[in-house]
Amino acid sequence: MPNSIVVSRKCPHVCDFCYKEAFFEGGKSFYTQTVDAALAEIERLPGRHLYFLDDHLFGNARFATALFDGMRGMGRLWQAAGTVQAVLRPGLLEKAVESGLRSLFVGFETVNAGNLTEQRKWQNIDRDYGAVIRRLHDNGVMVNGSFVFGMDEDDPSVFDRTVEWAVGQGIETATFHILTPYPGTRLYDRMAKAERLLHSDWDRYDTRTVVFKPARMSGRELEDGYWRAYRDFYKWGSILRGAGTKPTLRGKARHAAYAGGWKKFEPAWDLVIRAKKAGRALPLLETILTGFGTRPAR
């Protein structure tokens, strides 16, 4: 992605399935640039669009607040990742929107409270996911929801239930994952102790492959359900149903354009990226993001 930028490393939270503590073992697992250095780097980047690759741009509220204040007036349009907790923090989202936030990757991970507790994802527990989505949409921000399948409370119905919930909430895009017990994580230690790991040959598979014994379904059911979730969420019927949750015709059209463009034209995007011509698509992306940046009338 042109104009990709990183101004912080990793995340202040420690979830059992996340590899970040193992990756940064012996060092700091969360830290930020100085605000002045981050703003200077942003100033040097051309055009309007920015893609923050930070795992949790809102992780240090003081840093994020100062960064967003400094970005006001720059005329930027940007995308980033954050948490449900950060979205619900009073005032922080509004500052982000005023500085150009138009799309946010949010780690919902699961709609099952038992799974959240098991994985010690404390920042999501007892949070109203619906309120998170409404708050983002009310501020003109698109939602890219992240979901992980294969936690111990998941059974074969989890895929359809998750997709149905996400479509009904009007989430523009979704990213699905298969639970992976990375070495050095508490999840890996639990799986190893329970003899649930199928192998530890980390060169032979990718993160779309099941490498452990799921608790309430077979490995084949988990893999098949993962692919079905992607297919069902991004079929045109689902995209149009999600678009139908938007209150205005303009909002419906932009939902359909963004969600359709995100997944339906992957082969075309692949060719554009391989040809190193992604920058030429930025005006179209900026047009869509600008439309979402207009807050709905109240």
Rank of each mutant, 00 (worst) to 15 (best):
M1V: 13
I5M: 07
V6I: 06
S8P: 01
D16E: 13
D16F: 06
F17W: 10
K20D: 15
E21N: 13
F24P: 00
F24E: 09
E25A: 15
K28I: 14
K28G: 11
K28F: 13
Q33T: 10
A37V: 07
A40I: 08
E41I: 02
G47M: 06
R48K: 14
F58S: 08
N60V: 09
N60C: 13
F63W: 10
A64K: 13
A66G: 04
A66V: 02
A66N: 08
L67V: 10
L67Y: 05
L67N: 07
G70N: 03
A80M: 09
G82K: 02
G82N: 02
G82E: 03
G82W: 02
V84E: 09
R89C: 08
G91Y: 05
L92H: 12
E94I: 07
V97D: 00
V97C: 02
S99R: 05
S99K: 06
L101A: 05
L101H: 01
G107W: 01
T110A: 04
N112K: 10
A113R: 13
L116N: 06
L116F: 04
T117A: 12
E118D: 10
R120I: 01
R120H: 12
K121Y: 06
Q123V: 10
I125L: 14
D126R: 14
Y129L: 12
Y129I: 14
G130Y: 01
R134Q: 09
R135Y: 00
L136H: 02
L136P: 04
H137A: 08
D138H: 03
N139E: 10
N139L: 07
G140P: 05
G140A: 07
V143A: 03
F147T: 05
F147C: 02
V148R: 01
D155M: 01
F159E: 03
F159V: 06
F159C: 05
R161H: 04
R161G: 00
T162M: 03
E164I: 01
I171G: 03
I171T: 04
I171N: 04
E172G: 02
A174I: 00
A174R: 00
T175F: 15
I178P: 00
P181Y: 00
P183A: 13
G184R: 04
T185K: 03
L187F: 05
A192F: 02
A192E: 11
R196C: 08
L197S: 09
L198M: 15
H199Y: 15
S200P: 07
W202H: 15
T207Q: 14
V211T: 14
F212M: 13
M217G: 00
L222F: 07
L222S: 07
L222I: 13
E223Q: 15
D224A: 15
G225F: 03
G225E: 05
W227C: 08
W227D: 14
R228T: 14
A229T: 11
F233A: 07
G237D: 15
I239H: 04
I239W: 05
L240I: 12
A243G: 12
T248Y: 06
T248M: 09
T248S: 15
K252H: 06
A253L: 14
A259C: 15
G260Q: 02
G261C: 01
K263H: 11
K263W: 09
F265Y: 11
W269L: 12
V272L: 14
K277M: 13
A278N: 04
G279F: 10
E286F: 07
T287Y: 11
I288A: 00
L289V: 03
T290C: 09
G291V: 04
F292A: 07
F292K: 04
G293W: 07
T294A: 13
T294C: 06
P296C: 05
